[in-house]
Amino acid sequence: MARRGDPGREAIFAAIRQSLGRPAHSAEARRELDDHIGKHRANLIPQRGKGDGKELVDRFRAMAEAAACTVRTVAAEAEVPGAVADYLRENNLSTRITLAPDSWLSGLDWASQPMLETRGGPARNEDEVAVTPAFAAVAETGTLVALSGPDHPTTLNFMPASHVVALRASQVVGAYEEVWQQLRKATKKGRGFAMPRAVNMITGPSRTADIALTIQLGAHGPRDLHIVLIDDQAGQE
């Protein structure tokens, strides 16, 4: 526990203030710094994090592919189970999949794909394929953002050798800062917000270059990361 009166703690704060040559902040200075935090000001958003819907989705796709993801676009969410089945078959992957217990994702018509064997819940070590949703995606670097919670066990992002993410094009934003705004809104609690236990920013499959600086995919996490992108933006602009 953090303890006021903890001698180690007090010594560190005293040392910091002594080196900086000033006492603890006044109540007014604290208010100013708290205000500064509360504004959540972006420092500098690169041009590449800006743009309109279609442009951002194209950029997201290009950046994700550059990070070794594969991306397939489908016209409607009803096509997701079929696209997942196709991907697994084409790549000779297991057809036993673990679905994130997310109401939208599990509400899709998985029964339409009799070759798929589905179950829900956190990952088990023997699981080979996880299928999950994402909270948002960032065009800037082709990054997916996932939030932990009852509907999305964190282990699904890391344990199985293959990770398939069903993403709606309308979830793609330009820059990371837009995700933080959405996150604060989605988890609003009182005057603040409640961070989920884990926020995972995922850019491509797991990789390492620790042996002779040659890149190998699937170091500890997924060897492949496939994105089924649902084109739900038609007529939105």
């Binding site: 670097t141 932990s148 961070m195 989920p196 884990a198 920013m201 850019t203």
Partner: peptide, 24 residues
């Protein structure tokens, strides 16, 4: 560091497992 646009995993961790979290 490596010339990557972004590292594969950036993870923000806040507190222990919540009562309804399935893992963590």
């Amino acid at each position: 560091a490596t010339g990557q646009e972004f590292s594969a995993y950036t993870t923000i961790s806040t507190g222990p497992r919540r009562p309804d979290d399935p893992d963590g």
